[in-house]
Structure formats: structure tokens, C-alpha cells
Design a protein around this nucleic acid. Structure first.
Lengths: 165, 165
DNA sequence: TTCAAGTGTCTTGACATCAAGATACCTCGG
DNA sequence: CCGAGGTATCTTGATGTCAAGACACTTGAA
């Protein structure tokens, strides 16, 4: 089955036969698929009155384990947003009583963000929904193919996740 | 090499051993890698005073081939943004003299967006830069692995690219 | 021919994000 | 103990995106 990237690559080979556009076969698909996933997540979460960005923060805290708290800095590395964005997210989640801010007892510069009981419930409910949706999307692939895909993707993400940048 | 998704999955298996979180091995990596790629592209394009969204529009028109014009609707399916966003993008690119708007001779509702000579140059220059960066990122993988990865990703993107949605 | 439904683009208003920089605090060598 | 450099978080201002709906035009069935 052809996809939009096949058409895109064919167009470049016609227009710029001097260039080797093979990298696009992988990375354009990654970018486009991520956008499709964002859309699908937004629609699915809307049933729970939850935005994707809320899900990202709440589940990061949820999987930290009891007492469900992380510093804003730790949340940054998990969600890949800037610090200003995270400050804003925490503000809004606090207003909705899904998280609360506590002073870090070991560092007076620091803050700890903790899930409320309500926030924990939202995280648990929405995770199940997300997994159901993702299973449907991955239905195209066999178990073995999913494993191969995960392994290949890990080789690309690991360098980003393991350097200062 | 371990990545952030390995840690994320391990955390869920500890916190929610009742759930099968295997789908995250693939799709969380796709989302996170896309965010890393966005960041890297933004930095790389900044040298050419170009924003990623500008690149997306200009190159869509460039690879359409002479006379380098598409309707806003066609640009939507290529860039996966909403129509309001595309109107705004075309406005800004027009102000910078990179594209121009023409009436569609066959449909009075319609518009054609055409690349200017300057826009075409920008597209050609920045594409070469993007490919160089992407080749560096993909350096982790052998030629065969890149082929496998592209094929597996195509199976996931094709359903999105070939339905009305 | 006519008009109801469909289509393509644009407008509006709310909002999330980012980059850059400010502020307060910590750390560690001397 | 001091101070310089590093770190954690927040503030600010600009900007890009989205959802929803308005508007003009096209299409096709009667």
C-alpha cells in the first residue's frame, strides 16, 4: 500500500534527480505519523475532557510511583517541552486540582509537582484508553514486526535521549 | 543502548503490571523522535532564517514541479495542518515574497499558491541542508535497516494517508 | 432551470508554545 | 567563610495553531 511519503519521494526524484532523498523514506514518515497520532489522541482524549498535554504530564507523574511527584525539571526531560511551557502547564493543572505544587525540602530553589487523587484517577483512566487506540493502529503489524520496529526506532532515539542536548 | 522509552515502559510495568503497555514501545518512540527531529530541524533551518513551517510549504510547492503551484487544499493534505493555519501561512509567505496567490481559472472559489523565484531558491537550498542533517541522524542504521524501517512505518502511515479522515 | 447539499477558502477568538532572560538558590575551590 | 559559576524555576512578549463557523461558489438531481 502506497502512502503520502511514497508520492513525496517520487516527486523529488522527478524534480531533483541529482539529490539522494532516501533519508526522507524514514524520517518524513516518522514526522507525519506523529502528526496523525497527535490528531487521533486529541480526538480520543476529548471524550474524557482531557488534552494531550495534560495526559503527558499526568501520566509522567503517575508512573513515577507513589507518592507521584517529580520536579518540573524531571517533567521537562519526559515531555520534551521548554521550561516556560511546563510552568504554564503546571499552573493550569493546579487550577483544575489535578496536581499541586510543593516546596522541595532538599533544595529551596526547587519545587515538587504532585498528583492529586483526582489527577491519579484521570491518568489511570486515560492510559487504558490510549493503549486501546494504539493497539488498533498497530493492528497492521505482527508481534514480531512490532518488536523489530521498536528496536530500529530505539537506535534513532537513544542518541537524543542520552546526550546533554 | 537504552532510551527514555525503555525507562518509561519499565516504570509502567512496575506501576501497572495489569496493563499490556507494549504498544508504547513503538508509538511513544515515534512521537518522541518526531519532537527531537522538530527541534533539530528548527536549529538547522535557523541558519537560513527559515522556520520549519516555511520549509514545509515551500518544498511542497517545489516538488509539485513547474509551474510550482498548488491549491491551499492540496497543501493541507501534504502538511497536515488545518485550513486556518494554512491561510495564515500563505499570508506570511506572501508578505515575504516567497509565494503569491493567484485565482484558480477553473473554480472561482479556488486559489492557487505559486512559488516565486526567490521561494524556489530557498526551497532548493534548504532541502540539501535537511538531507545532510537527516543522513547524520540515520547514520546509526545500515542501508538495509533503513529499508526495513521505512517499510514498517509505511504500514502504519498508509491507513491514515488513504482514508477520507 | 432551480435549489439543496457539498466544497474550498478565509475569519475569528482562544490558547499553547517557544526563546530569552530574570531571579533565587546551591556548590565548591581557595 | 566567601564568591564565582552553575542550576532550577518562573516571567515576559511574540507568535503559530486550532476549532468552529462564515461566505462564496459549484454540483447534481428533479
Amino acid at each position: 500500500m502506497e502512502d503520502e511519503v511514497d508520492r513525496l519521494v517520487a516527486a523529488w526524484r522527478r524534480e531533483r534527480p541529482d539529490l539522494d532523498v532516501e533519508p526522507l523514506e524514514v524520517l518524513s514518515r516518522v514526522s507525519r505519523l506523529a502528526r496523525h497520532l497527535d490528531r487521533a489522541r486529541r480526538i480520543a482524549f476529548a471524550e474524557h475532557h482531557l488534552e494531550p498535554w495534560e495526559f503527558d504530564v499526568l501520566t509522567s507523574l503517575r508512573r513515577a510511583g507513589s507518592p507521584y511527584q517529580l520536579s518540573p525539571g524531571q517533567l521537562l526531560t519526559q515531555t520534551l517541552v521548554t521550561s516556560g511551557t511546563m510552568t504554564n502547564r503546571i499552573d493550569r493543572l493546579t487550577k483544575k486540582n489535578l496536581v499541586e505544587r510543593l516546596p522541595d525540602p532538599t533544595d529551596r530553589r526547587g519545587v515538587l509537582v504532585r498528583l492529586t487523587a483526582e489527577g491519579r484517577d484521570k491518568a489511570d483512566q486515560s492510559l487504558a484508553g490510549l493503549l486501546a487506540q494504539e493497539r488498533a493502529i498497530l493492528g497492521e503489524l505482527s508481534r514480531q514486526q512490532r518488536g523489530e520496529l521498536a528496536g530500529l526506532l530505539r537506535q534513532l532515539t537513544a542518541p537524543f535521549d542520552n546526550v546533554p542536548g
